[in-house]
Computed example of a mutant assay.
Amino acid sequence: MAKILYSVTMSLDGFIAGPGGDMSWLTPYLGPNELVDELIPQIGALLVGNRTYGGDDPHKGTEQEGEPFGGGWSGPQFVLTHRPPAVPRPGVTFVTDIGSALAQSAAAAGDKYVNVLGAETARQCLAAGGLDEVLVCIAPVLLGDGVRLFDRPGGTPVPLERISVSHTPLATNIWYRVVR
């Protein structure tokens, strides 16, 4: 059975994208990360928010642009959106509600991970009771503004249990399990 994992690189001050969704800040921190390299083959499907799907790319201007994990992963993608495009895109399923998105992506992933990309989509997964784990790779930079890891004003605390901590020259990785 698939697990739903929100994996993301975050600045030390809690931002996953800069102002306006700018991802160029991430480019210097895309170096080797053994934990991420081991995770990628364990991903069976992606569940992506529409802003993330159509947004900025840290690989902009390279042959890896537009490819999940810079071309290191391929497989079924599910994009959560209120406005699916009129023209289908190969390998991409557009879904309009979080319940369907979770069910379809989990079915496609089989016994692997569904990797969630996008802060709002991760928040919706959490609210729906579908988020199982969170992997945060903390980059040694302070962005000062942008898109937060989780933005839940007035939300209640969500207890997490640490699974592991590891370090690379470019990030500190902290993997958590959502406690239910």
Rank of each mutant, 00 (worst) to 15 (best):
A109L: 06
V165P: 00
I16T: 07
A107T: 14
A86R: 14
E133V: 08
I138N: 03
Q104V: 02
Y53I: 00
L149T: 09
G44E: 12
P88H: 12
G66K: 04
V116Q: 02
K112N: 12
I163S: 11
L126Q: 10
T156K: 13
W73I: 01
L12P: 08
G72Q: 14
E161G: 14
G14R: 09
H82T: 14
G155F: 08
L30R: 02
G154D: 09
V95H: 02
I138L: 11
R162V: 15
D22R: 09
E63T: 07
D111K: 12
L39W: 13
V147K: 11
L12Q: 11
L117T: 02
G70F: 12
E133S: 11
L160W: 13
G21T: 06
V48W: 02
A108T: 08
T96R: 13
E161Y: 01
R177F: 04
L26Y: 02
L117A: 15
A17V: 00
T81L: 05
P19S: 11
A119F: 08
I43D: 10
A2R: 12
A45D: 08
V48H: 06
D56E: 06
P140T: 13
G55A: 07
D22G: 11
N115P: 01
Y113L: 08
P19T: 07
G18W: 12
G75C: 10
D97Q: 05
P76D: 13
L35N: 10
T9F: 03
W73D: 05
E34Q: 13
T9N: 06
R152V: 10
E67T: 03
V178R: 08
G18C: 05
S166H: 04
P68S: 07
L80N: 08
V116Y: 04
G91Q: 03
M23Y: 01
I40C: 03
R83N: 14
P169F: 02
S74V: 02
D22I: 05
I4N: 10
P19E: 14
Q104G: 00
A107H: 11
L5M: 12
N115R: 01
L143T: 02
W175Y: 12
I4V: 15
S74E: 15
L12T: 13
P84Q: 11
G61A: 01
A101F: 04
A127S: 09
N50R: 15
H82N: 14
E65V: 04
M1K: 10
L142S: 09
I43Q: 10
D57Q: 03
R83Y: 07
V95K: 03
W175N: 06
V134G: 07
G99Q: 14
V92P: 03
Q77M: 15
V8Q: 03
R162H: 03
V165K: 06
P88M: 09
P169K: 12
I40L: 12
P41K: 06
F15G: 05
R162L: 14
L102I: 15
G44K: 08
A122D: 08
